[in-house]
Design a binder for these strands. Structure first.
Lengths: 255, 255
DNA sequence: CGTTTTCAATAACACATGTTACAGTGCGTA
DNA sequence: TACGCACTGTAACATGTGTTATTGAAAACG
């Protein structure tokens, strides 16, 4: 069920009612679109009309300078919402592109009006999603401004790992990892060559195994230390529920 | 009237009713606090209880690593709201400190509940504020990841200039500028020494005059070009209303 | 009103990361 | 099966920015 990741994630934070569930489910199955890998979903300058919910696949948000310099500004994983309420803006200030094949559900203005009027728990959950996304952006700023190449990459891998885990998308100690070294370079502000050097270093220290399109993290704790990673900014806990309390990948969200 | 900056700014985007005005005014005068320069208002790890509205003065949001590396993650100018609805999170993932003397109004959870229930235009305006702040964060990521030192500083100065202008806080071609070179370094991810070098360069090219605590921008257009600055991300227009239409230096935002 | 502290300015040197170039590997597709 | 193309891996070299140190000028302070 492709909606699982979103509901799963939101329920970390707010207990949704059965009515909420039905409502979300309908919204997420009504207007669904599918995209090939490596295509743009939305382009800078366009008028935003809908909010996009990622049902499956990976995507990213990026900005580009006229001379071609390109920066990935965030990654979208299954269950992520692209920007609650963007349609109140006149035009997009960035683009959104797919990494893998992606399915999205379009959420309309009316959907959000209805949420606001009739589903207070979902409102809260969406605010949580919005605030966490803002916190992630801040942490990226921290990484780009202060962390070394090795710390940056280690940090990013930790973040992706935890976000995937929250969406129920990790296996024992590994997960799908469709990003190329070029993608990592665009996200970390490093050159491709240096990303490669740095990945070698992480491998040499046994912090990651990255081959084909899967990433293994033999020891998350060590990787977190290498990236100076403090998970507080993901706000994965609420009312006493702690991230650590949830143990291994599979039962993470059991709650 | 210290509330002017906020109202002025929000009205750029949404026309507020007289009732909205009265309501905002009351909220902004009820619980006001004053802080000295260079002190913390909020510390990482604390439980957020209120949302802060900056009535006057400059502040910043920052994060710090254990070894002391410090990154300014955003600046707060008069009229800015620190984070709509933060209090739904369990703890702060960053700190907020003052630069100058600062007055803030504390906005409670009840305030936001009331807004949600009775002031739909304010809801929209706050969403706009939230989305613009997110866009600013993205642009900082772009700067830190892709722009050179000179571009970064030029870009930041343009951003601050336009935000001050929107709040009605610029004079003909100059404005107050209380940031030290150390602040700029922490915000741009550069060393203090390199910030100094770069400011000299900007001065030598006649792009800025920065002395004491005031900044002059003789030619905003040239500075914008030096910083590869595209103002679209500030979303200063709505429904055809352009920034030019509203006031002070009228020649600014070309397109 | 001098004393102390912060901030700005500059120089000399160090190094993390960028650039260019090319070879190897794997994978999609015909 | 082989072609083509995108991705990974490495080497040699270039450079933008960091580091450390010192000085002078302004503020802040007692």
């Amino acid at each position: 069920m492709p909606l699982a990741s979103l509901v799963w994630k939101l329920e970390q934070f707010v207990r949704l009612s059965p009515v909420d569930h039905v409502f979300l489910h309908r919204a997420a199955t009504e207007r669904v679109r599918h995209f090939a890998p490596r295509v743009d979903i939305v382009r800078e300058g366009e008028k935003p009309t809908d909010v996009h919910l990622i049902l499956s696949g990976w995507a990213y948000r990026y900005k580009q300078l006229e001379d071609g310099r390109r920066q990935v500004v965030s990654f979208f994983l299954p269950g992520d919402i692209c920007d609650v309420n963007v349609f109140i803006l006149r035009e997009m200030d960035h683009s959104i592109g797919t990494i893998t094949a992606v399915s999205i559900a379009d959420l309309s203005r009316e959907f959000f009006d209805k949420v606001a009027a009739e589903h207070p728990r979902i409102v809260t959950a969406f605010w949580w999603e919005t605030l966490v996304n803002a916190a992630i952006q801040r942490e990226w700023i921290m990484s780009l401004g202060q962390r070394t190449a090795l710390e940056r990459i280690a940090h990013l891998l930790c973040e992706i790992w935890l976000r995937l885990r929250l969406a129920g998308l990790t296996r024992a100690d590994n997960c799908d990892f469709p990003l190329t070294q070029g993608d990592l370079a665009d996200a970390t502000g490093l050159s491709k060559v240096h990303v490669n050097r740095t990945l070698q270093e992480l491998r040499a220290e046994g912090l990651i195994v990255l081959k084909g399109k899967t990433l293994s993290v033999p020891n998350l704790d060590r990787l977190m230390r290498a990236g100076l990673f403090n998970p507080n900014y993901l706000h994965m806990d609420h009312e006493g529920r702690q991230l650590d309390a949830v143990g291994t990948p599979s039962d993470v969200v059991a709650g």
